[in-house]
Design a protein around this nucleic acid. Structure first.
Length: 292
DNA sequence: CGAGAGTCCTGAAGGC
DNA sequence: TGCCTTCAGGACTCTC
């Protein structure tokens, strides 16, 4: 199980390092065969200052647990851990610079390697996160109830994510459509890149008030979000230049972004220069001609 | 309740 | 070359 870290060096249109939903799902799928049914033999927490402090009893709770499976809710991963009466869930989030990798037990830790979970007979699951916007929490009990999860909106690729849902939730709201679809209580997993790309595909101007968008246009947006996320999922994640997959191999294809990161460049459809604006302290890219 | 701003953090990029 | 400043971003949290 010799794993080598390979960094992608070829150019891409989106050079940032942030796991969006497709990347999180790819991480989940990559980890699953390495962890399923295995017992936690050792937990090392080198840095507890993450988005929230790593709970002091995380080590105790994880140690000796068998990892039954990993599921995903939005960009959160839920690790089902069985240990008799004290079973529970490891709740993890990659923030914007986090990675989870399965490595050979012999891999030594470097800077930003905050948490190691060594499994019986290997491998070593390593959480690395330079910016520490990610999280590692513990949910006790047999049901994954947690304040971070309980208010979340539907999964974008589920049947619950519909035009009617967006239309109903948005009535009377003046917030921009860009900020609206990035709100996890409305729908999970639509980050800055995919929000911009989806709005472009749907032909909707990102500053338009969410409450004034028609049901028909919301249908276009739902389709665009499904298409955008679905394509990225199939490609194995898309928003990163140098993300390393959980098995250490090169990960993440690049999306050929229509608007993201393309300010001043010609729209791929109409050649109008792509513009950027700031919404909710976040940069949005759009085509002023194609989006209304 | 909703809207808007603030917050955490580090690395990359730009200016002088 | 090197220091300093700015920016980026997920998503919670606070204030009004």
């Amino acid at each position: 199980m010799a794993h080598h870290v390979t960094i992608c060096t070829h150019s891409c249109s989106v050079g940032l390092f942030m796991p969006e939903l497709p990347e999180v799902e790819t991480t989940r799928l990559g980890l699953l065969p390495h962890v399923q049914g295995k017992r936690v033999a050792e937990v090392t927490v080198r840095e507890h200052r993450l988005r929230w402090p790593v709970p002091p009893d995380l080590t105790k709770n994880l140690f000796g647990s068998t990892i039954e499976t990993i599921s995903r809710r939005g960009k959160y991963l839920l690790w089902t851990c069985e240990k008799g009466r004290s079973s529970g869930f490891l709740l993890s989030h990659l923030g914007m610079s986090g990675t989870l990798r399965a490595l050979a037990v012999s891999e030594s830790a470097a800077r930003h390697d905050h948490i190691d979970i060594r499994l019986d007979g290997g491998p070593l699951i390593r959480y690395t996160d330079p910016r520490r916007f990610g999280a590692m929490l513990w949910i006790a009990g047999r049901q994954p109830h947690h304040p971070l999860l309980d208010m979340l909106g539907p999964e974008p690729l589920s049947e619950q994510f519909t035009a009617t849902h967006l239309y109903t939730m948005s009535r009377g709201r003046s917030v921009s459509i860009k900020e609206f679809v990035m709100n996890g209580r409305i729908v999970v997993g639509v980050g800055n890149i995919y929000a911009a790309e989806s709005l472009y595909r749907a032909g909707i101007h990102p500053a338009r008030a969410a409450g004034k968008i028609s049901l028909a246009r919301y249908q276009r947006l739902v389709d665009a979000i499904r298409d955008t996320l679905g394509a990225a999922l199939r490609a194995g994640g898309s928003s990163l230049r140098d993300y390393v997959k959980t098995d250490g191999e090169l990960g993440y294809f690049q999306i050929d972004a229509f608007v993201y990161g393309r300010e001043g460049l010609a729209c791929r459809v109409c050649a109008t220069p792509i513009r950027s604006i700031v919404q909710g302290q976040r940069t949005t890219f759009f085509c002023p001609a194609c989006q209304h």
